[in-house]
């Protein structure tokens, strides 16, 4: 007789636990406005990444097409996987001295792991992390970018 009671008790207990679980899922079912899905391409306007989000390395230019890069190559040294190539050139300053300057700051987006070490190491703050994350392209050559704009030069007063 005791065994029978135990048996009935296990049945009811088991059904009870199952109903508790169904209560949880059911409670979410009847609150459909609490869904967490974001419909991505539709919400492009409202979708804003955090300001520290590491989407890609960019080099900001001011309105005179000037940047802060001196071409020192520290970012290239700090990059763990060779995503950055610095091609420098020498220019003549006003007082006639030869000075190193950036010719091309080549950035291979396809190899970048977004570790932020280049940005952290840059002595002049010439490169920063951009928030753009839609990087898909049809051709992988498009992933190799030149960060300094054509015809740009270094801003006044930037010291190495």
């Amino acid at each position: 007789m005791n065994g029978l009671f135990e048996y009935i008790k296990t049945v009811f207990k088991g059904v009870g636990t199952l109903l508790t679980g169904m209560k949880i899922t059911g409670s979410y079912f009847f609150r459909p406005w609490k869904h967490v899905t974001q419909q991505y391409p539709e919400n492009r306007e409202t979708l804003k990444m955090f300001d520290r989000f590491r989407g890609e390395v960019i080099m900001p230019h001011n309105e005179n097409n000037e940047h802060l890069c001196t071409g020192c190559g520290i970012c290239e040294l700090n990059c763990p996987n060779g995503s950055i190539e610095i091609i420098s050139m020498s220019v003549l300053t006003e007082d006639g001295k030869k000075k190193r300057a950036i010719d091309k700051h080549i950035y291979h987006l396809g190899m970048c792991t977004f570790c932020n070490l280049c940005v952290k190491a840059c002595p002049t703050g010439a490169i920063i992390m951009g928030q753009e994350f839609e990087h898909a392209v049809w051709d992988r050559t498009k992933l190799t970018k030149v960060l300094n704009l054509p015809g740009s030069k270094i801003a006044q007063g930037v010291k190495e």
Partner: peptide, 9 residues
């Protein structure tokens, strides 16, 4: 229905 249970759409 399963999406609604799982708070999806």
């Amino acid at each position: 229905v399963c999406a609604m249970f799982q708070q999806r759409m």
